[in-house]
Design a protein around this nucleic acid. Structure first.
Length: 536
RNA sequence: GCGGGUGUAGCUCAAUUGGUAGAGCGCCAGCCUUCCAAGCUGGCUGUUGAGGGUUCGAGUCCCUUCGCCCGCUCCA
């Protein structure tokens, strides 16, 4: 079968990756035995190891051993694990209730979909040449400054076809959402020719809803968080009060988030339940750009530290019209996924959120969330600022720089990046994952070359020793070649084999996954060998 | 939500005009085995995505539904 044009050039590779990931227990479709559930995925025995490794790597790089700041001193960073369900007002304050709840209207005729609040309607009236005013119907247009012009232009076209005359410009538009169902049925869609093709507005809730408590009424409605960030903002004051961190500092969090994505697609790229790694960095307003640039560069370094080729990563600055109204700057780190190639797709966003979130929460919660910067006060006094100036500037709402990335997206990127398909061991298409050793689910396979002459006993003992420090697997089954191949397939970087020589000189062979080459290492040095190789 | 494609064993796939669901790989057990998916013997695996219909008979035809892929649409 020739491939159709609609198929992307690398669509095949993605299928192979998904297939291998399933076959070796990395990612399963959620609820598969019931036919699956769109937008949800389960991480299998190897998948959870890989995910945990990435998670730990991030946590270490952000919380336990954060980068050294621009001024050469270590950065203050703490971790957090907030609840998935928060007080509903959190999401009102954050803007998610309003912005994530867009009623949509579909046009049955043109198949177009509109945000209901973007549709304005008005009666189309024409003053005919004889002076009579005739109404041609109720038309809708997309809201905006040019809505009036668009409306007149459109009605003018129809008027010409039906006898001409002058269009009476509407003095006011009525929002589509204010119409009764009967009135809606009379409206002509923005791109439609016939009336009554618009559906009634249907809610499009981006936030998943649940009920807190056994009563499922409106008062008990709660939301599953669509991002982990708000849990950080709501605890910002707690952290300041109960730890010794001072601005500038960061709070990091890893956890699940939920969004009713319109189109969950591309394997685990866009799913309705996903895991985020987010950090909110609180800094003085006048230092915010400095920190924004700092974190932008640091985050790119981190992705490269996972073993991702520089060619496959790039920055993409958001255009001004793409920025949220509160954001001063935002940049995405993008990856060249097989399904976007040759284009890139989003991997992490580094956003300058200004003081928006804390200001919002301060207003909605009536709690003071500003920060008194004693250091800055001192500095201002020393620089001879006026008392008024010192007072005004040393108390502020911190600005926030937010590097937010998807842990589950990181798993996807590593699967894509590590995937290899080459001719090997007499197999035409041998598939395997070449993970960086540090992130590989299993670090080493331990084998007796054959199951006799005392080899299994030595190998087992080695396994029992090593597994206390490293994630290892002992495998005495089938031929040595198959065991090597099995380990290669799941991305295990090292295979350690006890052979006939081991008994004589206490040494084993260690085989490298990528080169398939072996070296001999003393039994007692194996642990050191692995430690050395697993260093970042 | 719309349009197109698709769904058969853990994986890759086969099954003539509608006529008894198969193969390879894998996996398991045993034997053998001194380094790259080796060999021998035996074994496991399916409500053909699900539900309904037509038919003497459905993997195959029809309807509904679910998942996946592609393109639209949408996307804090």
């Amino acid at each position: 079968m020739p491939s159709t044009e609609s198929e992307p050039p690398s669509g095949n590779i993605m299928e192979q990756i998904v297939s291998l990931a399933k076959r070796r227990g990395f990612v399963y479709q959620a609820s598969e035995i019931y036919g699956g559930i769109r937008g949800f995925w389960d991480y299998g025995p190897l998948g959870v190891l890989l995910k945990n490794n990435i998670r730990d790597h991030w946590w270490r790089a952000m919380v336990e051993c954060p980068p050294v700041g621009p001024d050469g001193s270590p950065i203050d960073m703490v971790g957090l694990d907030s609840a998935i369900i928060q007080h509903p007002n959190v999401w009102k304050a954050s803007g998610h209730v309003d912005n994530f709840n867009d009623p949509m209207v579909d046009c049955r005729e043109t198949k177009a979909r509109y945000r209901a609040d973007h549709l304005w309607t008005a009666a189309a009236q024409v003053r005919r040449k004889n002076g009579n005013v005739e109404t041609l119907g109720v038309f809708s247009v997309l809201s905006g400054d040019d809505a009036g012009d668009l409306f007149v232009k459109r009605v003018d076209k129809i008027a010409r076809k039906t006898g001409g005359g002058e269009v009476v410009a509407p003095t006011d538009f009525v929002p589509f959402t204010k119409l009764s169902p009967a009135e809606m049925a009379e409206v002509v869609g923005p791109d439609a020719a016939q009336k009554g093709t618009l559906t009634e507005p249907r809610p499009f809730n981006m936030m998943m809803i649940s009920y807190n408590g056994p009563l499922q009424d409106e008062d008990n409605k709660v939301y599953l968080r669509p991002e982990t960030a708000q849990g950080i903002f709501t605890n910002y004051k707690n952290v300041l009060d109960t730890t010794r961190v001072r601005v500038p500092f960061g709070i990091a969090q890893i956890g699940k988030s939920y969004r009713n994505e319109v189109t969950p697609r591309n394997f685990i790229f866009r799913s309705r339940e996903f895991e985020q790694m987010e950090m909110e960095f609180f800094c003085p307003p006048d230092q915010s750009i400095l920190w924004y640039e700092f974190w932008r560069d640091e985050r790119m370094k981190w992705w490269k530290s996972l073993g991702i080729r520089a060619d496959n990563l790039k920055f993409r600055d958001h255009d001004d019209d793409e920025l949220a109204h509160y954001s001063k700057a935002c940049v995405d780190i993008e990856y060249k996924y097989p399904f976007t190639s040759p284009d890139f797709g989003e991997l992490e966003g580094i956003a300058h959120r200004g003081c928006f979130d804390l200001t919002q929460h301060q207003q909605h919660s009536s709690q003071k969330l500003d920060y008194f910067d004693q250091e800055l006060q001192l500095k201002l006094k020393e620089s001879g600022a006026s008392p008024e100036d010192v007072k005004a500037k040393s108390r502020y709402i911190p600005n926030v720089i937010e590097p937010a990335s998807g842990l589950t997206r990181a798993v996807l990127v590593l699967l894509c990046e590590a995937y290899r398909c080459e001719s090997r061991s007499g197999v035409e298409k041998f598939e395997y994952f070449a993970f960086k050793p540090q992130l590989a689910p299993i670090k080493a396979g331990i084998f007796p070359l054959v199951n006799k002459d005392g080899m299994p006993e030595i190998a087992q003992k080695l396994y029992m020793d090593l597994r206390q420090q490293f994630t290892c697997e002992y495998d005495p089954k089938q031929s040595i070649g198959k065991r090597y191949a099995r380990m290669d397939e799941i991305g295990t970087p090292f295979s350690i084999t006890v052979d006939g020589q081991t008994k004589d000189d206490q040494s084993v062979t260690i085989r490298h996954r990528d080169s398939q080459l072996q070296e001999r290492v003393a039994l007692e040095k194996v642990s050191t060998f692995l430690t050395e190789k697993l260093k970042a």
